[in-house]
Amino acid sequence: MAELEISHLGKSFGAFEALKDITLTIQSGEFICLLGGSGCGKTTLLRLVAGLEDHNKGDILLGGKDLTAIPCHKRNIGMVFQSLALFPHLNVGDNIGYGLNLRGESKAVVRKEVDRLLGMIGLDGLADRQVSALSGGQRQRVAIARALALSPDIFLMDEPFSALDAALRDQMQIEVKRIQRALGVTTIFVTHDQREAMALADRIVIMQDGKIEQAGPPDVLYAQPQTRYVAEFIGTNNIFDLTFTNEGVLFGETNLGKAKGKNEGVLGTHSVAVRPEAITLTKASKTGLIGTLTTQRRLGAVIEREIDVNGQTVFQSAFAGQGDGFAEGDTVAISWGPDAAWVIPA
């Protein structure tokens, strides 16, 4: 395994610039999720690493070797496609053993490796079955096994679970994570589902408009978003435009008191992110932020609320049993702890 270095990578389709100056280093054995909305460039980046598209500028180095000079079929890349792309004319065993057969491995070696991979994905004894006779989850597993059969240097997955139902998707996420950990293969996983990215990745790369907005471990992205886009994209967030002064923090005309904790000493107007679970609701008082509870939904163990504060909707969530006793239409006061407010740098 080796480190993958992407530097100043650019890709255009005619006048459309799909990737703009992408620079990213992926450590050996790391599990990276490329996360972003449609058209953000995540799949294009994956396809450039795979060699399925030609780049316009920049470099892709694998262990110091220029990957862009190597054609796709010689890159030793394992890739799982969104459509899975299993070969319909081959059975399960032949699909998994396709690459090994192509390399000229003996039948015995191919059979042994296919059986090993089938065991790893929990499909023992299904080598002779047609892929059309498999369930959605089984097909996913076969696609993963086929991509891993050649012991690839990099394992790429392009939204492979997008067609699965929620339960099967959760199950496959656990499977993929287990296999990736067991093999230690460097993995790049493309998804538009932030929940999936949070569950899988060692590091999430959030992309927008062909650029990397922020890259980092899931908990860091969640707690310390570097841009407003990331703050709004990862989970639900309350973004307040606050003015920090020596007299206190102002939300419009309301003085919320002096900045404390990590925000002490901050001056000027900033966008501040506060997660719904960090917001505390109390009966209305004469000070602080006052609003009207407009919506209250109980979702099992969690209660989600929306409070209208001077025209801005504030989201609040709490475990059921904690902070109960509010009804829609109530006038409430909202507050948060000194370290719960994250001043977005950009």
Binding site: H73, M79, Q82, A85, L86, F87
Partner: peptide
């Protein structure tokens, strides 16, 4: 993507 899958699995174009 079936053709692309074949490429990533080492099939010459």
């Amino acid at each position: 993507s079936i053709e692309e899958a074949a490429l990533t699995l080492g099939t010459p174009p």
